[in-house]
Structures are given as structure tokens and as C-alpha cells.
Nucleic acid binder design. Structure first.
Lengths: 161, 161
DNA sequence: CTGCGTGCAAAAACTTTGCAACAAT
DNA sequence: ATTGTTGCAAAGTTTTTGCACGCAG
């Protein structure tokens, strides 16, 4: 992988990413390429939920010749390997988020301004597990999103302009 | 509204829908039209999560001259008025689900066979509200999806073919 | 009458894909 | 060498929009 260092990842996490990816690609005869490595590097340095277009923008700073198509293909790869989660927040765009490097969390989304707040709640997680067990499910992942108005937008709606 | 009667809705619920919609449209100078009424009728008779294309198909049985564009516009209206929820299950299609007529529920989705199980859990709902309050959010809707393997698929994976 | 709504077709937005050149093993 | 990968552009999907006509209030 490239030489840039992430601010948000520990060396151990970087290592886990590389290991998982190597194994995933090895198992199905996929090859490691310059472009893939760059995209993966860049993506895990970013912190948040990013569209392909956004990742592409950042990738092109390092290598302007990489095409969007390759970013699409690579992000799909990351999602399939479990290293990233694909999310849909309701604008018509898939956003990707690292599945490693921070604890599991859920999202509060403001439907007016688009702000996304992350939160964790162990109690909810436990209840989710309980529900799954009750239905005989073996849960591998989940997502939970609360939609509404953030505080500033509540005010804006009450006292227009 | 048209004369067809829903199997899954009580008269009281039908009434609530009509009232909510009338108010929503009245407040912003929107008009009630033949097409809108038909689409709303048809949608609330259906039970499940439907794409615009699917609703359109059903609408055209009653009136083949209604355009997709109108269905898109009407479903958006229903979502904005709170009568329907827009969902994204990861295929690139928005699906709509009635927000009235059954209690709120969430989804357990089997990633192997695609089975969707619905469940409710009041305790989780309460915790969600608490989280939102803590962040100053005024929540209007939420969704929660648990992904994993249903019981039959767990067995299938353990003892292949 | 005065807009809002509708259908149609064109366009937009996002994503996937075919193909010839290219690179990794 | 062999096979997977890339960039490009074309094509696919899903959703939105401009416009002239029609209909509701």
C-alpha cells in the first residue's frame, strides 16, 4: 500500500484491513493493483460517509488518471469483503463507510439540512440481538437510522426567514 | 376517493388517511385530482414495500392513462405528508410502505435467501426516542434493519447440499 | 378565471458494462 | 503467457423536469 498515514486508524487496524483484503482477493484470484491500493488507502483515511464521487475527488488528487468506474468497482469490492458498509440515506446516492476503525454506531439524519450525527447505544444493540435470537436469526450486521429535524432546523421551521 | 375497499385497512384508518392528506394539501394549496386519489387508494390497498413501478402497474389496471411521472410525484407527496415511508433496501430502488394501518415495525433480512421478517419492539422504540432527545432531534421516522441468516439458511450453510 | 396537475418526452443523476489496451502474477 | 484490471465511452436504471394542455377550486 501507499505510504500515507491515516490519522484515524491505528497500525493494527491498517494491518487488519490489509490482511482481510489480501485474503479476500487471494481466495478469488483477484489482483492487487496500483489503483485499488490507492483507492483503499484514500478511503480509509477519510472519516465519514462518502459517495463514490467524493472518494473519486480525493483519489484524483493523488492520481488524476483513475476513472470513476474503477472507484465504483473498488468500493463494491470493499463492501463485499466486509471492510466497508454501503449506506443509503435517502438522497439517491450510495455512501460508503469504513467498517473498521470505530465502534459500531447508528445515525441521526436531519431531513432538512442533511446533517448526520452518529451515536452508539449498547442497550439498543443488546435488544436487537435478543430480537434476532427470538426469530432464530444469526445477525451479521444491522443499521438503524432516525430521521427528523436537528435543533437548528427545528427553529428555522418555526420562525421562517 | 374511489369506491374500492381495502382488505387491510379499517374504515377509521381510511378516514385518518383522508383527513391527513386533505389537511396537508389544503395547507399548501395543492389540489385533489382523479389521479392522486386513485394512486393513494391503490397504494393503501397494497400491503408491503413497493417500488413506484409496482404501484404504477397496479394503478394502470384501473386507469391505463396515468403516467409514471404522476406516480413518482404522488408517492413523494405521501412520504412528505408522513403517510408513507420511503425505504432503500440496497437494490437501487426506493420502495414505499404505508405508515398507517399497521404498527411501526422493523425488518430482519436474510442475506442468503432474501426473506424479510417484520418485528416490533417497544423497548427499542423508547430507547430511540431517548437517544434523539439527547441530541436535540425531533424524530419524524426511523428505520432499523438487521441483516443475517435465517434459521434454514444457517443450516444450509453448515451442511452444504 | 387562475393556478396547480398531468402526460409526454427529454434530461438528469447515478451506476454498470463492453471493449481494447495494459498490468500483475 | 495468462488472466484479471483499467479507462473510456456507451448504455442502463431510476427519478426528475420543461412544457403545453387540461382540470380543480
Amino acid at each position: 500500500m501507499g505510504g500515507s498515514v491515516s490519522v484515524t486508524m491505528t497500525p493494527a487496524q491498517r494491518n487488519e484491513i490489509e490482511k482481510t483484503l489480501d485474503r479476500y482477493m487471494g481466495e478469488r484470484g483477484l489482483k492487487s493493483t496500483r489503483q485499488r491500493s490507492l483507492i483503499v488507502d484514500v478511503f480509509f483515511e477519510m472519516d465519514g460517509h462518502f459517495s463514490v464521487e467524493e472518494v473519486w475527488g480525493r483519489v484524483r488528487q493523488d492520481n488524476p488518471r483513475v476513472s470513476v468506474a474503477t472507484v465504483y468497482r473498488t468500493m463494491k469490492l470493499l463492501a463485499e469483503s466486509g471492510l466497508a458498509h454501503a449506506r443509503n440515506f435517502g438522497d439517491g446516492q450510495t455512501r460508503y463507510e469504513a467498517a473498521i476503525g470505530k465502534d459500531h454506531h447508528d445515525h441521526l439524519i436531519c431531513t432538512r439540512c442533511g446533517t448526520i450525527i452518529e451515536f452508539e447505544n449498547d442497550q439498543i444493540e443488546r435488544l436487537q440481538d435478543a430480537v434476532a435470537r427470538k426469530h432464530g436469526f444469526q445477525v451479521t450486521s444491522h443499521k438503524m437510522e432516525l430521521y427528523g429535524l436537528c435543533r437548528p432546523c427545528q427553529r428555522a421551521v418555526e420562525q421562517p426567514a
